[in-house]
Design a protein around this nucleic acid. Structure first.
Length: 775
DNA sequence: CAGTGAGCGAGCTTCCGCTTGACTT
């Protein structure tokens, strides 16, 4: 039996460490926190100095029981959880629950998992730092107070099962405010002018290069005037400058930067990335994936150096150590890197391989030389023309880290390729070949993706590596936010060109504003946000976390008592909670749009029992008229015009096969009515306000075709029994019940007897059961 | 299936940060 029991947080870590420590040590894992505040109630005794009520979570009972048993058999217990606030608290909870006394307990920490680091840690044990533990308790209790007092207000004032919290509510606020910025954005058009010039080299052979005009014109008129001046103008290169510059590699991955790059380069969602990284970690292929540190171990630096030298040459190696800049970083771990950097590929799924490759390249790049770039700028002018053209060229003199890794940009704005310029001399003639003036439009700030929201939260110091992915899914689950694609809209733009001394104009069409996997706040998200911002401004403040973090730091340093800090916070917070509960009306997000010109009654938008709707008149003056908002409409941006259009249903479209075709909106959304039959519009692509007769006929015919294909077989001798093709494949329908067909049978060849046998077996397709979440 | 929206009220919901499986589809 081992004399030493070491407890770490993760089982994968336990396995590795056990190898280093030898047979006298048994290494076990606590699987994170073993206790938390009781979930049944607030879990905090406010009357008694905020005494927390800790409970061993159900899923940790087994772990705790096992640890208790092992503690009895061990002489010394080594608590080796992470060296940060949460890690210290885990160690303390373990000591409490396992009833460890000081004599048998050692607290050790290490932030890289190497034999040396661990043996050194064993030589330098310390005691549990109660100040740090108290900082964690303050953090925990503050979050519980905020979450469990704000959420019930929302249940009463907006609708049940909503939630609010220090992190999630600010995340939603970011999205809501960005959406409003986008709605308020006024796009302005301008003309971007580029020209193609030709130069002759000393041998007389010609080369062309592009250049952009130094100014952008506001109107087509100015643009035409400029092009007119360019006719027969004698352009000349008046200035050539060449400047060297260098570009340094980005630091190795943290959780947040990994999520961003995996999203941009591989198209993974934040949670997908984390699941894959977890797999790689458990297989021993990468270091821990939840970290905010950009630190690399000495071992990793050395191996990288060797790998780079042998793969690319010694001149590509430039060992570096990076410093974390993010607010509130706790740095208990290393950056995310391959465990064995020399391993170029791994076994596993395609997605795992791609993620590994990304991590490896980023790690290597971080240890490689700067790229050396030479930037050339040439100015091209002509007499009589005030504006000038600028040609820029980039030559990579030494690629350095760019050999393996290029960081992707968030905004996919203008294409800025490092173009190549031919050798240019001052005073050289540049023959104008053509000029192209393209009408462009200023673009609103971009909507957030999951990954760019994580980036923003990290910048604000809100949330931790272990919570980014769960936060993103919580705000979607609560219905505050949806992740969607949205189709773009066509837009005309003008192109004015000068070629061979002739000016031509064209109107072209582009698709603009298409969105892919972007986060959109919902109506309910906006209502909840406005309610919280109005009533709890301090908590919704982007600096709230940073402010309380400063106080947690003081607690950790022993300069502030945690109960004192919490009491001060709670007294003003709770007062606000009480006030809001008594004084505020139920919020339906009501917004007046204007008056109905026909009746003079007010038209407004609000949340009803069945979701967002527009209403004409209120209950005081007769029965109001109602209409649900359509998909893609939002309470925040819908106009009086949009609202009034909703009441012009059902709308006649025309006649088809001698019957009238109308479009209407019913309980289940927009529909087409034809020949007493209903046909649903496609929720995503058809707009009932604008749908045409042609499209309606298409929908009718599609549906008829589908119904024909639906019937596989029926039996004249048994009416009511039919073999049908459904959403989930073929099935037997009989007496309003559906029956599954065994996979071994061909549905088209089933006989009546076989069908009756299947029905007799009662192999009914199970109804969808409502799954309740376990807590 | 195809133009709902009142009001009452039992019993439920909820936070953030550590960690993995256990579950369907």
């Amino acid at each position: 039996m081992q004399e030493n029991l070491v407890i770490v947080e993760s089982p994968a870590k336990a396995k590795t460490i056990e190898k280093f420590l030898g047979k006298d040590f048994l290494v076990k894992s606590s699987f994170g926190h073993i206790r938390d505040l009781s979930k049944k109630n607030l879990g905090i005794d406010i009357e008694h100095n905020f005494k927390p009520e800790y409970v061993i979570s159900d899923d940790k009972k087994k772990v705790v029981a096992e640890l208790k048993k092992l503690v009895k058999e061990a002489k010394l217990v080594w608590l080796a959880s992470d060296e940060d606030r949460e890690g210290e608290a885990i160690a303390w909870h373990l000591a409490e629950v396992l009833q460890l006394n000081d004599a048998q307990t050692r607290r050790i920490v290490f932030n890289e998992i190497t034999k040396d680091a661990i043996l050194n840690a064993i030589k330098k044990p310390r005691n549990i730092d109660l100040n740090l533990v108290n900082a964690q308790q303050a953090r925990r209790i503050l979050d519980r107070l905020v979450g469990f007092e704000l959420s019930p207000i929302l249940w009463k004032k907006i609708k049940p099962a909503l939630s609010a919290g220090r992190v999630q509510s600010v995340a939603v606020r970011l999205l809501v405010e960005r959406e409003r910025e986008i709605n308020a954005f006024q796009s302005v058009s301008y003309f971007k002018v580029t020209a193609l010039f030709e130069v002759k080299d000393p041998k007389g052979s010609a080369e062309t290069f592009p250049a952009e005009l130094s100014v952008r014109f506001q109107s087509a008129e100015e643009t035409r005037k400029f092009l007119e001046k360019c006719k027969n103008a004698a352009f000349r290169i008046t200035e050539v400058t060449t400047k060297p510059s260098r570009k340094s590699p980005p630091p190795p991955f943290t959780t947040s930067t990994l999520q961003q790059e995996a999203s941009r380069k591989l198209g993974f969602s934040v949670s997908q990335t984390m699941t894959l990284a977890q797999k790689l970690y458990e297989a021993g292929k990468i270091t821990y994936m939840r970290t905010d540190s950009v630190n690399l171990s000495d071992l990793a630096l050395n191996v990288s150096k060797k790998v780079i030298a042998s793969e690319f040459g010694a001149e590509y190696s430039q060992p570096r150590q990076y410093k974390t800049k993010t607010k509130g970083a706790q740095e208990a771990h290393e950056a995310i890197r391959p465990t064995y950097i020399e391993k170029e590929t791994i076994t596993g799924s395609t997605a795992e391989k791609k993620l590994y490759d990304l991590i490896r390249k980023r790690t290597l790049a971080s240890q490689m030389s700067d790229a050396l770039i030479e930037k050339t700028t040439a100015v091209i002018e002509a007499p009589g023309i005030d504006e000038h053209f600028i040609a820029t060229g980039e030559v990579i003199k030494f690629d350095g880290f760019l050999k393996v890794y290029r960081e992707s940009e968030d905004e996919e704005g203008e294409e800025k390729k490092g173009n190549f310029l031919p050798p240019l001399r001052q005073n050289q003639d540049a023959l104008l070949q053509s000029v192209n003036a393209v009408q462009k439009f200023t673009y609103h700030p971009p909507r957030y993706t999951e990954a760019s929201l994580v980036k923003k939260l990290e910048e604000l110091g809100i949330g931790r590596p272990s919570t980014y992915a769960p936060t993103i899914s919580t705000i979607q689950q609560r219905g505050y936010v949806v992740k969607e694609d949205r189709p773009g809209k066509p837009r005309d733009y003008m192109v004015i060109s000068l070629s061979k001394n002739k000016i031509t104009e064209q109107i072209k069409t582009e698709i603009t504003g298409a969105e892919k996997a972007k986060l959109f706040p919902t109506d309910i998200g906006m209502i909840v946000n406005d309610f919280l911002v109005q009533n709890f401004q301090d908590i919704l403040d982007y600096n709230f976390t940073a402010t309380v973090e400063k106080e947690f730091d003081l607690i950790a340093e022993g300069q502030l008592e945690w109960t004192k800090m919490i009491r001060k916070f709670y007294s003003s917070f709770h007062k606000k909670v009480e006030e809001t509960l008594t004084s505020k009306e139920k919020s339906k997000g009501e917004r007046l749009l204007g008056t109905d010109p026909e009746t003079g009654k007010p038209v407004f938008v609000k949340i009803g029992r069945f979701g967002p709707m527009v209403q004409i008149g209120d209950a005081n003056d007769g029965k109001p008229r109602f209409a649900s908002l359509l998909k893609g409409q939002s309470m925040d941006s819908v106009t009086l015009e949009d609202a009034l259009a909703m009441f012009r249903f059902p709308r006649k479209l025309g006649t088809y096969m001698k019957s009238e075709v109308t479009v209407g909106i019913g309980r289940f959304g927009p529909y087409i009515l034809h020949d007493k039959k209903f046909y649903s519009l496609n929720r995503n692509t058809d707009n009932p306000l604008t749908v045409t007769l042609e499209r309606a006929i298409e929908i009718i015919e599609e549906k008829k075709q589908k119904d024909q294909n639906k019937l596989i077989k029926e039996f004249p001798e048994k009416p009511g029994l039919r073999i049908l093709n459904g959403r989930y494949g073929p099935y037997i329908a009989f007496n309003n019940e559906n029956y599954r067909i065994p996979k071994t049978k061909n549905p088209a060849e089933l006989t009546l007897d076989e069908c009756i046998a299947i029905i007799g077996n009662k192999e009914k397709t199970p109804r969808k059961t409502v799954r309740r979440k376990k807590s």
